[in-house]
């Protein structure tokens, strides 16, 4: 068998999809996170924090909730490899002649596809928070979700191969998912004009006119900026750039250079994939 077998990759990609479709709890998790973060937190906190750069709070956190679902789906898919390796089908796959490159690619592409499906759940709620998304924007968002899924599933595979066991998913959630989520600018901007309580609503027509002049908020808004140490942590997190790219696709708003966002998103996916392939190859005959 050559170094790359598309047949192996496709078979393992299909396996990930089949597992996803036969696991309603994962879809339920994606829905419940959407309701909690987008609807309850978005509208709840949005009642106090009226605007961020001209967007309602629920609109601002929409891409972040998609990121949260991608984080859970991708890393769960990667970490599942520990159980699969100890007690599941992967033991049989690893003693087959299938090339490590193809096995890892199948796993990562499958995880990324599931991540797209999970990331689309909050995006389906976009009209509820007043965001209309064109087909082009949706296609762009799906591409970003997929790229995020590749990078994060690769990261999950890497962590899984470095750990002897994963006793509970809670430690992973607290140690990996939440830092990546909270330090990505998902629920607060790096720097921006925030509109507060008691200020007049801006009529939509006037809001559009002001935006054309580069003004996103007026009348009682104030500029917020993260403390230096927090700003640095946020900028060290690759998810910050992917999320900014996703926010640009969904809201036509971004805070970082788009070229940097693209480079970091693609680079993170490439690096974790290459490292995951090497790690799996080494772990295969230990």
């Amino acid at each position: 068998m050559s170094a790359l077998s598309l047949s192996v990759t496709e078979a393992l990609w299909r396996r990930e999809l089949t597992r996803y479709l036969r696991d309603p709890s994962q879809i339920f998790g994606g829905l419940s996170r959407t309701v909690l973060w987008l609807i309850i937190l978005g509208f709840g906190l949005g009642a106090t924090l009226r605007e961020i750069e001209g967007y309602s709070y629920a609109q601002y956190v929409l891409p972040g909730v998609a990121l949260l679902n991608v984080l859970f789906a991708s890393l769960q898919s990667g970490f599942q490899l520990v159980y699969d390796r100890q007690h599941g089908l992967l033991r049989q796959i690893l003693i087959s002649p299938a090339p490590s490159l193809s096995v890892t690619l199948g796993k990562i592409l499958g995880g990324a596809t599931v991540a797209v499906a999970q990331g689309l759940i909050p995006i389906a709620f976009a009209p509820v928070v007043g965001v209309q998304i064109s087909l082009l924007a949706l296609a762009g968002a799906m591409a970003v979700l997929f790229a995020m899924g590749v990078g994060l599933t690769g990261l999950g595979v890497l962590i899984a191969l470095r750990r002897g066991s994963i006793d509970n998913f809670g430690s992973i959630s607290n140690g990996v998912i939440q830092p990546l989520y909270f330090l990505s600018g998902s629920i607060f901007p790096l720097k921006g004009i925030v509109g507060g309580i008691g200020f007049l609503d801006i009529p939509p027509a006037l809001r559009d006119q002001l935006r054309m002049h580069g003004i996103n908020a007026i009348g009682g808004g104030w500029v917020v900026e993260l403390p230096g140490w927090l700003d640095m942590l946020v900028r060290l997190n690759p998810m910050t750039y992917s999320l900014d790219l996703l926010r640009w696709c969904l809201l036509d708003f971004h805070q970082l250079q788009l070229a940097t966002n693209l480079a970091v998103t693609a680079g993170f996916g490439l690096v974790t994939t290459v490292l995951a392939i090497r790690a799996l190859d080494r772990a295969r005959q230990r």
Binding site: E10, T18, L89, I93, A98
Partner: peptide, 23 residues
């Protein structure tokens, strides 16, 4: 010693996967 199976797959899917792994 212990089954190395994915319980969410069917026998047909399990065997198809194996056929692909062994080219």
């Amino acid at each position: 010693q212990e089954p190395a199976l994915d319980e969410r797959l069917s026998p047909r899917q399990t065997l198809r996967l194996h056929a692909a792994m062994h080219a």
